[in-house]
Nucleic acid binder design. Structure first.
Lengths: 188, 188
DNA sequence: TTCCTTTTTTGACAATTGTCAAAAGAAAGC
DNA sequence: GCTTTCTTTTGACAATTGTCAAAAAAGGAA
């Protein structure tokens, strides 16, 4: 749980009371490789913090293909955001790509904590904002950069992805076919 | 200011005290068509609510082209999000596309209100979350849909954009060239 | 109205990326 | 070690989209 506390403190420090209440509400989750944390069609009731391992978010496209649009690594917050926020079934699956250790908190427990600890709600607001900025950057890249540029950007900003994730999933994440990504890599 | 109050209440009701404090902190801004609300290289110090009119967010790409990635209409919240949150200069310009009326609040004033009114911070957290979901949907479309599909989706979800915005800017927003969009339109 | 400016469309061609199929390479199990 | 399975690369070709240039259409101002 130290990793979570350290991660939190980089966003916004919270009171000891808030941290203690939060700690009590957390459940430890250990999953082997290729297990599912969230399945499509279900309401996602938990927000997770990933202490160790890695995961991907994907959905099954109409044509039957898996579409990976998201990876999670150590110290990332993980949930099926749309489902968790809207309380409706989501279309996304979240799957471990390695043996993983997470800490989870339920939607209800989190909202109760918000009522009791204003600083905890502030923390979450600030984290949300930072994740929004990241998403915005990704959208910009997707909208205005070529496949090659997106790959080179990934090499710079997240080289660890290349070492931990199969190429086909990275290609999907970049919005290109696996063959195109393979050709881009051979021409650098 | 009624429009703002109504808009807020659809996200999360706030106390009368919070609303009164917020009202006092707001400044009315009226801008003619083609005026700038935010300029690149500046720190954006205000969050706006658009009561009447429409705006676009864009930046100047390396090759000299304007890249439009965002439109705002009535009842939208408007800011240079990265700059407003991180307190650093942004690369984006925000420009009116029609005569517009907005209400603005400064970063400092908003954060002071957060300290005094927990429910106001909750409101902003919830609004942020809804905007995050919208952004996520846009990223999905950009990543996994063809130009034609993205245009048809825009026709369904935001037909008003077509009637108020020049084609070149819509094309940029969809991540395609104006010529391609023109051809897509002629083939429907 | 007429002129001038901006916006949209069209044509020709080039560049990028996708698809299908097969081969090569790497990893995991026995 | 040897299979078996999964992952990555390569080839050939098709489809999509971009670029440049010019024409057509639409909108504003005098």
């Amino acid at each position: 749980m130290n990793a979570l506390h350290h991660c939190i403190s980089q966003y916004h420090p919270i009171s000891i009371a808030a941290w203690e209440a939060l700690s009590k509400a957390l459940t430890r989750v250990e999953l082997p490789k290729n297990a599912f944390l969230v399945r499509e069609g279900m309401v996602c009731n938990k927000l997770y913090f990933l202490e160790q391992g890695c995961l991907r978010g994907y959905y099954n496209n109409l044509d039957g293909k898996e579409v990976t649009y998201w990876f999670g690594f150590e110290n990332n917050f993980i949930t099926s955001f749309y489902s968790f926020i809207s309380r409706k079934p989501g279309i996304e699956n979240i799957q471990t790509l390695e043996d993983s250790t997470l800490w989870g908190i339920s939607f209800d427990a989190l909202n109760q904590l918000f009522d009791q600890h204003h600083d905890l709600e502030r923390l979450v607001r600030i984290i949300n904002e930072q994740y929004y900025i990241r998403l915005e950057e990704r959208l910009m890249a997707m909208q205005f950069k070529t496949a090659r540029e997106r790959y080179e950007q990934l090499l710079e900003t997240s080289p660890h992805i290349l070492q931990r994730i199969p190429l086909g999933q990275i290609a999907s994440y970049l919005g290109i076919s696996q063959e195109t990504l393979s050709r881009i890599r051979s021409q650098v």
